[in-house]
Simulated assay, not measured.
Amino acid sequence: MTGDVAVLGAGMHPWGKWGRSFVEYGTAAARAALADAGIGWRDVQSVVGADTVRGGYPGYVAGATFAKALGWQGARVTSVYAACASGAQAIATARAQILAGLADVVLVVGADAAPKGFFRPAGGDRPDDPDWLRFRVLGATNPTYFGLYARRRMAVHGDTLEDFAQVKVKNAACGALNPHARYRTAVSAEEVAASAVVADPLRLLDICATSDGGASLVLSSMEFARRHGATDPVRIRAVSTVTPTYPNTVLDLPDIATDSAAGVEPDGASFRSSIARAAYEEAGIGPEELSLAEVYDLSTALELQWYEDLGLCAEGAAAKLLREGATAPGGRIPVNVSGGLASFGEAVPAQAIAQVCELTWQLRGTAGARQVTGARVGITANQGLFGHGSSVVAVR
């Protein structure tokens, strides 16, 4: 049995700060995806919702929430949570249902209404969660983490502030062409350098914002797609949702259960490279076959790291790849032609779905002014708290 499923429809609610319920954003995105697919809501046999922890109880049962908002019609519902990887896990769940023969048509929806400023840890105390420990023991908020990562790249690979700024310049130029993006204004390197320091060496314009927004996909079996008249649809070829293989660390802290015997030797690969490797292996492709990539640019320095972890260049060569223009539109391997999180901000359950929406439009050749010429294969890369990784490979 082939592992491909068809992407019949893609839809989004524009990102921004709209001050309304996540349900409204997700419902609008779902209706746009259904219209794009040319099918009715009653044709949908399953709904998979990516959960938001900020939407109260409806956010924890997002599949049922969106099914109710669209009008209960008997579809099965599933709700998934994987922090920033929630959207990819929702896609993986929908794909599994289709390949198992449980449904021919599945609607995937994610949406969020984000608070201003830092995301506060949700779910109470989590002393077994390394991210919670980072917040509480180190006092390292996400921008602090990003800053430390940037400093490491500067020390190990020689990246510069100018390199980081050029990532923002590139992504802002792409975002200016995207009607769904929150920020649609080009930015200069001088403006990045002049923005406020948030977590040295990163400036305000090096770090993504928090946003409201929604994204949705209509996925189907290849047989249904052909019956529906879609003879050459975009296809999801692989979904990777792997966890890290780092060794466990024994910590001398109270109330933390550790087991040094459970530790494993590191294999030399980072978590992010493991995410990509699993996607490549399942899809049966290598990075040299990619037409474009959509990656999780929480900060400019982290986008550079993805270049290496996706195998777009050798370790330490990301800044060189950027300087050569290889990751810009028209380059060898354009990255974040959507504008990335730099232009959208984080709407957590929606962002991994939004990445696949962009791949869909690019592979169809309908991305307008930001179209990558001749795009045939695309990859997404994302990660969430508590060891959630995700990558999706789409082809045409």
Rank of each mutant, 00 (worst) to 15 (best):
M1G: 15
V5M: 13
A6M: 07
A6E: 00
G11F: 12
F22I: 07
A29C: 01
R31A: 00
G38D: 01
D51L: 01
R54W: 04
G55R: 03
P58D: 01
G59H: 03
A62N: 03
F66N: 08
F66Y: 15
A69L: 02
W72G: 00
Y81H: 01
A82M: 06
A88H: 05
A92L: 10
A94I: 09
A96N: 11
V105G: 05
K116G: 08
D125Q: 07
W132V: 03
W132T: 00
R136H: 15
G139D: 07
P143F: 13
G147A: 10
A150L: 10
R153S: 04
A155G: 04
F164V: 06
Q166T: 01
V167N: 06
K168P: 01
N171G: 02
N171Q: 11
A172L: 04
G175F: 04
A176N: 04
N178L: 09
A181H: 01
V187R: 05
A189W: 07
V192Q: 05
V197F: 14
L204Y: 10
L204N: 13
L205S: 11
D212L: 13
G214L: 03
S220H: 04
S220N: 02
F224C: 00
T231P: 00
V234I: 05
R235Y: 04
I236L: 13
A238E: 08
A238T: 09
V250R: 14
D255R: 11
D255A: 13
A257F: 00
T258S: 13
A262M: 01
G263H: 02
G263A: 15
V264S: 15
A269I: 07
F271W: 09
F271T: 05
R272Q: 15
R277G: 08
Y280T: 06
E282H: 05
E282L: 07
I285G: 05
E289Q: 15
S291A: 08
L292F: 11
Y296F: 14
T300P: 05
L304F: 07
L304K: 02
Q305G: 14
E308R: 06
A314E: 15
R323Y: 13
G325K: 09
A326M: 08
A326L: 08
P329M: 09
P334W: 12
N336P: 12
N336Q: 10
G339D: 02
E346D: 12
P349I: 09
P349R: 08
Q351A: 13
L359V: 04
L359K: 06
A367Y: 10
T373E: 15
G378F: 14
Q383R: 07
V392T: 13
A394W: 13
